[in-house]
Simulated scan of single mutants.
Amino acid sequence: MAESDLSKHRYYGGIFALLGVVFIWVTSSFAMNSIFGELQYNKPFLVTYLNTATFSFYLIPFLFKNSKKKNEETIKILNTTETRLQFSELESRSHLSINNNTTKLSTMETIKLSFAFCILWFFANYTTNASLAYTSVGSSTILASMSGLFTLGIGAMFNVEKITLIKLISVCVSFIGVILVSYSDQKTYPTEQDPTITTNISSALIGDILALLGAVFYGCYTTMLKVRIGDEDRIDMPLFFGFVGAFNLLLLWPVFPLLDWLGIETFQLPFTSTLWFMVLLNAFIGTFLSDYLWLLAMLMTSPLVVTLGISLTIPLALFGDIVFKGFIPQPHYIIGALLVVIGFVTVNIAALKERKQEQEQQQQQIPDQNISTNYQSI
Rank of each mutant, 00 (worst) to 15 (best):
E3W: 08
D5V: 13
H9D: 09
L18H: 00
V21F: 04
V22D: 01
V26K: 03
S29L: 06
S29N: 13
A31L: 09
Q40Y: 14
K43T: 07
L50W: 05
N51A: 07
A53V: 08
F55A: 14
Y58W: 09
Y58K: 10
L63E: 05
K70V: 05
E73F: 00
I77S: 10
N79C: 03
T83M: 11
R84A: 15
E91W: 14
N99W: 00
T102F: 08
L105K: 13
S106K: 13
E109N: 08
T110E: 07
K112E: 11
A116F: 03
C118K: 01
L120T: 07
L120R: 07
Y126K: 01
A133M: 03
V137P: 00
S139Q: 14
T141D: 04
G155N: 06
A156N: 13
A156P: 02
N159L: 13
E161Q: 13
K162Y: 06
L165Y: 14
L168V: 12
I169Q: 04
I169T: 10
V173A: 15
I176P: 05
D185H: 07
Y189P: 05
T191Q: 15
Q193Y: 11
Q193W: 12
P195L: 14
I197P: 07
I197S: 09
T199C: 13
S203P: 06
L205G: 10
L210S: 03
V216M: 04
F217G: 02
Y221Q: 06
T222C: 13
L239F: 11
L239D: 01
F240M: 06
G242E: 12
F243I: 06
A246G: 08
L249I: 05
P257E: 03
F267S: 03
Q268N: 05
P270V: 07
T272R: 09
S273K: 07
L275D: 07
F277E: 12
A283G: 03
T287Q: 14
T287I: 12
T287H: 12
L289Y: 13
W294Y: 11
A297E: 07
M298D: 07
T301C: 09
P303D: 01
V305D: 04
L308S: 02
T313F: 11
P315T: 05
P315G: 00
L316Y: 02
A317P: 02
K325A: 10
G326E: 04
I328Y: 12
P329Q: 10
P331V: 08
H332L: 09
V341Q: 06
I342N: 01
G343T: 02
F344C: 06
N348I: 05
A350C: 04
L352C: 10
L352W: 00
K356P: 01
Q357V: 08
E360C: 02
Q361K: 04
I366R: 12
D368E: 08
Q369I: 00
N370A: 13
